[in-house]
Design a protein around this nucleic acid. Structure first.
Lengths: 304, 304
DNA sequence: GGTAGTCATACGATCAAAATATGCGGAACG
DNA sequence: CGTTCCGCATATTTTGATCGTATGACTACC
């Protein structure tokens, strides 16, 4: 005993619409006898007559009318299911969980989101601020699909790809002697008390960048405060006169009273924001997101 | 480009359930390579990967999860559609035993049969003429499925539903003084000898209708003959000059020489033919027949 | 009563799915 | 660290179902 197939339903619906086996066969681009055979097969399978064959065409029986409605609905739903699957498969719809450090929300994240939303309006984005070490944990336990944080960082189980970079500025209290300058060298503030960004677990991040810049300028910073990790807090402490700090350029947009930002003429290091995601299978939505962010950013090439 | 078929969905669901091509193939009673091929075909058709093949089995992608839900629903609905069609169809074949009074074969029965035969050509009809009391007996002992007779009638174990009604005519011998009239009042023949239809057991039927009409006209009919139950016999007796009779309009088509039919201007009573069947379960064939006869007749509303 | 149109039947051709045999690659085991 | 096992992929033959062509039977219509 054979099984009902969608072909049978498609044929049957066409027969019902044309009220004629001959015309239906023409519309289906097959000959009339095979159509007859398939219809008969369907009727045998269902154990009932579906179509009355008369001399001038075919018309549905009661059972046929019932099946027609059902068959139309089923065929429509198959089409829908195909479309949905296709869309999810292509990354057009779905759900993407993204963790990011708060600094990313200044300059890096907004254009990413704008472009992604424009391209994939039906993807639900779950955005969560978190610490960089938290991002790594959440990546590992699969609670987020991707994360944004400062380089340097590496993890054998994760892809890491730079997506944006910005220069570093010196943040000074407004009361400082150098505030009337536009550019300074880092070694000019070698004696100042420094506020350094926090290190998070095994993640060197911006801390490493700043320390390295100081090393290259020939001094070791005198640290008055560490373990402050929010950039805006650091700027706040600077404004409060606690000391100076090296911060990413996007901090300038904070426009906090009491702090001024100067270009560092002798610092080549730049703060690199990277996106990271699990190695292995890459869901289509994530693939789409990666396509957008690596295409839209000032980021450099891939890491592998 | 091929089309998606239900086979693909069935295979896919099994693969998803077993999380393994090999086990799924076993459950489907086919070899593993063809299953691989069909899955690949489905993926090509949908343009997306549905299953991740790993070294120890297969697991769904995001798109696959979406399709799984849809496919399950669709397969279930196909099954439902088959069941529904089958059920309706089961009323399309079979056997229906119908008892009827001979009068019904004049005007009521033919259109019923024509319409029913057109819609359900595969139902074998067993038609049996019988007296109304016999119809009731045969209904009770389940030897017929339905019966046609004149109202009034009621029985707690039977459904009764009018399916046709006709006016009453006065049948006169051709030799009668009133034969040149077209319309008469019933009381104009109050002195004539009456031929009344028979009463059958507890069934008042047409007898009650005629007697009631006479009562309303202000007289009690003088009965010369009773217990004649075939309408055509009554008309024959009228033609033979035995007396006059009140008969249903369809008797006019008998065209028996020696009898004329006049419209009764003061008789509101009409002869109602009803269909009756057992309470309780209604087989599909009977249900189909009832659908036809209640839809095709000039019958009035239901009896309950 | 002929004719054109319908669907059913018969049979050979074609195509798609299934079976068999085998290869490849990753995971588990010693 | 190599061997073995397990699971999926590939290649090829076999099977079976669908399709196409030719033809016949029937009905409605002219």
């Amino acid at each position: 005993m054979a099984e009902v197939e969608l072909r049978h339903l498609r044929y049957f619906v066409t027969i019902a619409e044309e009220q004629s086996l001959t015309r239906a066969a023409a519309r289906l681009h097959i000959a009339q006898p095979p159509l007859s055979a398939q219809l008969r097969k369907l009727e045998t399978e269902l154990g009932t007559t579906l179509v009355h064959r008369t001399a001038r065409g075919a018309q549905l029986t009661e059972a046929g009318k019932v099946l027609l409605e059902e068959a139309r609905r089923i065929l429509h739903e198959v089409e829908q299911a195909g479309r949905m699957t296709r869309e999810v498969g292509s990354g057009l719809v779905g759900r993407l969980a993204l963790g990011f450090i708060p600094s990313a929300s200044n300059a890096v994240l907004p254009p990413m989101l704008r472009r992604f939303k424009a391209e994939y309006p039906d993807v639900t984005l779950h955005l969560q601020e978190m610490r960089p070490d938290e991002i790594v944990d959440r990546l590992h336990d699969r609670r987020i699909d991707a994360g944004l944080f400062y380089l340097p960082f590496e993890d054998p189980a994760l892809h890491v790809r730079p997506v944006a970079e910005e220069s570093l500025l010196l943040a000074l209290p407004a009361t400082h002697r150098l505030t009337d300058r536009e550019r300074v060298r880092l070694d000019e503030v070698s004696d100042e008390p420094f506020i350094l960004p926090a290190r998070h677990g095994s993640m060197p991040g911006l801390y490493a960048i700043v320390v390295e810049a100081c090393e290259r300028a020939g001094f070791t910073p005198r640290v008055v405060q560490r373990d402050v990790w929010l950039m805006q807090t650091i700027v706040g402490l600077v404004a409060g006169g606690m000391g100076v700090a090296v911060v990413p350029a996007s901090m300038r947009s904070l426009q906090r009273a009491g702090a001024v930002f100067l270009t560092l003429s002798d610092v080549g290091e730049r703060a690199q924001t990277a996106i990271s995601w699990r190695r292995g299978s890459t869901p289509p939505v994530l693939r789409s997101f990666l396509d957008i962010v690596t295409g839209s950013s000032s980021g450099v090439g891939p890491d592998e």
